[in-house]
Computed example of a mutant assay.
Amino acid sequence: MRSTGLPARSTDLSEWLTGAYASLPRRTTVEVDGRLSSVRSWGDPEAPTVLLVHGNQAHAGWWDHLGPRLVTGRHVVAFDLFGHGDSAWLPSYSWDAWAEQVKSIAASYGAKRVVGHSLGGSLALTAAARFGAPFERLVLLDTPLRGTRRTARAPASLAPPRPGPYPLLERARERFRLVPPSPRDPHPLILEHLFRESVHRVEGGWGWKRDPVVLARQGEAPGLRELVDAPGEVVLVRSGLGLVRDDVMELVRDAGGELFAEVVVEDAGHHVILDSPRRVLSVLLDVL
């Protein structure tokens, strides 16, 4: 039986989540090009590091229920992309600037294995294929690349809740939502944790820890060419109800590439780490 670094798992998801969230991360900052990136970590800093990269309009707290359960034999690091969470806001945002941030944070911790969800997977792939980040293995969690998006299930709008301020915390909670929506609601403990990690006090009440300008990012998302060109092995974890096409393996082969592995989480939507956390943990323990 694989050890997760925490007490034996309960079959009850509430207890499982409560145990994970009780294992608080260490927090620090890392400077990248003169701007501070907010970092959280779990496990032995002397162990090999696995880097976790969150998706669009999210933050490192999306990994708080998985990070502490990956620590056996690993140092687990997650960080906030610029414009998200507690990291610096920039005048403008681009794929390349975020990819350089991924590369720099990985280099700071010597991370050779990277897990990215959605935008985070695209940025990790960009860091490897365009900027030569020496990753040994990339795990892409429902990461739609150019030409692989399931158009019928693409979100109609990526518009987030208005930036605020909200005079009352409860008003902000009422506006909090996942984009795109999940086909089934994630556990209430997950949603409450994400909400609490997504807001901060601002003048006039409460606001989101997200720069609205991130939606106007510049540059081009990676496609199959980058996947083929990336050094190291690529594992694609595709959600059965997510944003990546079912025939992605054929598309990769047609482009001259090969995946190390493809795993399908049948009953999950795009936010697979929220919809099926224990299934995702099992996959990550197998492939990292």
Rank of each mutant, 00 (worst) to 15 (best):
R74E: 03
V114G: 04
P180D: 07
A172T: 08
A230T: 09
V32E: 09
G61M: 02
L236Y: 11
L285C: 10
S157H: 08
G219M: 06
E197Y: 01
L189F: 05
S37W: 04
S3M: 11
V71P: 04
S122M: 14
V248P: 07
P222E: 02
P144N: 10
G242K: 02
A172L: 01
T72A: 12
W89E: 10
E192Q: 12
V213T: 11
P48K: 01
L123A: 02
L215V: 06
A106M: 01
V234I: 11
S157I: 02
L70M: 13
R153M: 08
G83V: 02
F82E: 00
S118L: 02
I273E: 13
E262R: 15
A255F: 06
H200S: 12
G164A: 11
P163G: 10
L125C: 05
F260W: 13
A99V: 02
P91V: 00
L169K: 14
L24E: 14
V228A: 11
E233W: 00
V102E: 00
M1S: 12
L168I: 06
D247C: 04
W208E: 02
Y166D: 08
A60E: 07
S41T: 15
G67C: 09
T4S: 12
Y109D: 08
G5H: 05
A230Q: 06
R210N: 06
L81C: 04
P45G: 13
R149I: 14
H193D: 08
R253N: 09
S23Y: 03
A152G: 13
L119C: 02
S282E: 15
W206L: 06
V39A: 08
D80V: 02
K209C: 06
D286H: 14
K112Q: 14
M249S: 15
R201Q: 15
S14L: 04
T28A: 12
G147L: 03
E46Y: 07
G240I: 00
F260M: 10
L288M: 15
A129G: 08
P167T: 15
D142I: 00
E170V: 12
V139M: 05
S37D: 07
H117K: 03
E174S: 13
L178G: 06
G204I: 04
R74T: 07
S38I: 06
R278F: 05
E192T: 13
S38K: 01
P25D: 06
P45C: 07
H84R: 04
S92A: 14
D33V: 01
T28E: 15
R173E: 14
